[in-house]
Each structure stands twice: as C-alpha cells, then as structure tokens.
C-alpha cells in the first residue's frame, strides 16, 4: 500500500502550520519587524526550486527563467537575513549599555 505523495505533503503542511502558529505567538511584539524580514528571508527558500529550474545541462528558455529566479531569490536571502541582523544588532547595543 503506497500513500500518494500529495497526502504525505499535506501531513507535513498541516503539522508545519501548527508549529508556525505556536512559535510565532511567542515572538515578542517589539520584534515584529525583524520577524517579517526574517520570514521573508526564509520564504526565499524558493531559491531551491529556482536552482532546480536552472539546473539541467541542456539549456533551453526554462533554464534562463530559472536563473533569473535564482537571482531574485538570492537578493531576498541575503537582503532578508542581513537586514534582520542589522536590526537585531540595534536591539543589542542597549543591552551592553545596561550592563555597564
């Protein structure tokens, strides 16, 4: 008996939503902007799909479309994580000051 991959995927999907729901409610409201930028970086996981699209050795238009998607997603991966880091550094500077 083999389960259709769609069903397995659906299980993963539903469970991940539950995990997301519980994890996100615990995020402190002060960090909601970094939350948006980091989730933005995480959603650029579509980079993986873009790489597969750009992957085949026999180059047709699909490969170029994939390459363009790689560039777009990479902008987001780097931009998203780095801007989050920059913001979180700002929340850090004051901790140090408090400790002094």
């Amino acid at each position: 008996m083999i389960v259709d991959p769609l069903i397995t995927n659906l299980m993963v999907f539903v469970l991940a939503i539950f995990v997301g729901y519980h994890v996100v409610w615990n995020v402190t409201p002060a960090l909601h902007t970094p939350l948006m930028s980091v989730t933005n970086a995480i959603s650029s996981i579509v980079l993986v799909g873009a790489m597969l699209a750009a992957g085949p050795a026999d180059t047709d238009w699909g490969v170029w479309v994939g390459a363009l998607a790689v560039v777009l997603a990479a902008v987001n991966v780097f931009g998203g994580f780095l801007v989050t880091q920059r913001m979180l550094e700002m929340f850090k500077r004051k901790e140090k000051k408090d400790a002094q």
Partner: peptide, 26 residues
C-alpha cells in the same frame, strides 16, 4: 540542492549577483 544540479556556473553566478544586490540594499 547544488549537488542535484549541473549548471553550477550559472547558478553560483546568479547567487553572487543576487547576493551582492541584496547585501548592498540591506
């Protein structure tokens, strides 16, 4: 994912271009 693909030059090049833009903007 890189191990599943063949056009490494194209993909890594794309990541570098996008990454440079993203880092600058950030």
């Amino acid at each position: 994912t890189l191990t599943l693909t063949q056009n490494w030059l194209l993909i890594i090049g794309g990541i570098i271009v996008g990454g440079a833009i993203g880092s600058t903007v950030a």
